[in-house]
Simulated scan of single mutants.
Amino acid sequence: MKYDWVLFDADETLFRFDAFKGMQLMFERMGVEYTREDFEQYQKVNKPLWVDYQNGTISADDIKHIRFKSYAEQFNTTTLDMNSAFLDAMADICSMVPYARELLEALKGKAKLGIITNGFIELQDVRLAKMGLSDMFDHVIISEEVGIAKPDAGIFAHAMDKMGQPCKSRVLMVGDNLHSDVLGGVNFGIDTCWLNEASHPVSDNIEPSYNVTCLSQLQSILLS
């Protein structure tokens, strides 16, 4: 086994993150119909916030408040209550990316496993418990908790501190986002694997160590 540590992104690397279905379930529980058009309007606010978050110009708390501000006013509640209801719904609809569980089980005992995610604290423990993965990972590094988001080198440095400063050549970062996961890992000096399910072309400026369309391919690479 070439690596002592394999680090994973969470959303769309280990877990499916269908935000539209999550929003639908949240509003269904409120007795409100939620349409694709409603979601597209929400995404006009939500998507740029995540770009700003990755760029370090806003905080995780800013996302929670700004993206649900209009809904909170409309339904006479708070943005934090809306955010919590959404994360609860996302945990309830959680499913795993194909071959994610098989890969984790194959790697367990052969390498130490960790997660580095730009997600929220409130979702991670619940989701891991629901999927029966609470004991699978040695460390779960959450940007909201650290105060730094991928691709910033600071969150990778924090993870390395938690991991006991292993040799960088023995660490692999796996993720679906070419910018936050792959470029972040490359710039930090660790090997990376791009989970590229849609077979997008690789950017000339970003070169992952591995480019796979399915996690089963990564399992073959790591354990062959």
Score class of each variant (00 low, 15 high):
residue 1 M to W: 02
residue 4 D to I: 09
residue 7 L to I: 15
residue 9 D to F: 06
residue 11 D to T: 06
residue 12 E to K: 11
residue 14 L to S: 05
residue 20 F to S: 07
residue 23 M to I: 04
residue 28 E to M: 11
residue 32 V to D: 10
residue 35 T to H: 01
residue 41 Q to W: 09
residue 43 Q to N: 13
residue 47 K to W: 10
residue 47 K to D: 13
residue 48 P to N: 07
residue 50 W to A: 10
residue 52 D to K: 15
residue 52 D to N: 08
residue 53 Y to E: 02
residue 58 I to G: 04
residue 70 S to I: 12
residue 80 L to V: 10
residue 81 D to G: 03
residue 83 N to A: 15
residue 85 A to F: 04
residue 89 A to Y: 03
residue 95 S to V: 11
residue 103 L to V: 13
residue 106 A to P: 10
residue 107 L to N: 12
residue 107 L to V: 12
residue 108 K to E: 15
residue 111 A to T: 15
residue 114 G to V: 10
residue 114 G to Q: 04
residue 115 I to K: 05
residue 116 I to A: 02
residue 116 I to P: 02
residue 120 F to L: 03
residue 134 S to N: 15
residue 135 D to C: 09
residue 136 M to K: 13
residue 145 E to I: 03
residue 146 V to I: 15
residue 146 V to D: 03
residue 148 I to W: 14
residue 157 A to F: 04
residue 158 H to R: 00
residue 161 D to N: 11
residue 162 K to A: 14
residue 166 P to D: 11
residue 166 P to I: 08
residue 167 C to T: 14
residue 168 K to N: 01
residue 174 V to M: 01
residue 179 H to F: 14
residue 181 D to R: 13
residue 182 V to T: 10
residue 183 L to K: 12
residue 184 G to A: 02
residue 185 G to P: 07
residue 187 N to C: 02
residue 193 C to S: 02
residue 199 S to H: 15
residue 200 H to D: 15
residue 201 P to D: 05
residue 201 P to W: 04
residue 205 N to K: 13
residue 206 I to M: 02
residue 208 P to F: 04
residue 211 N to R: 12
residue 214 C to M: 12
residue 215 L to E: 00
residue 218 L to Q: 01
residue 221 I to G: 03
residue 224 S to E: 11
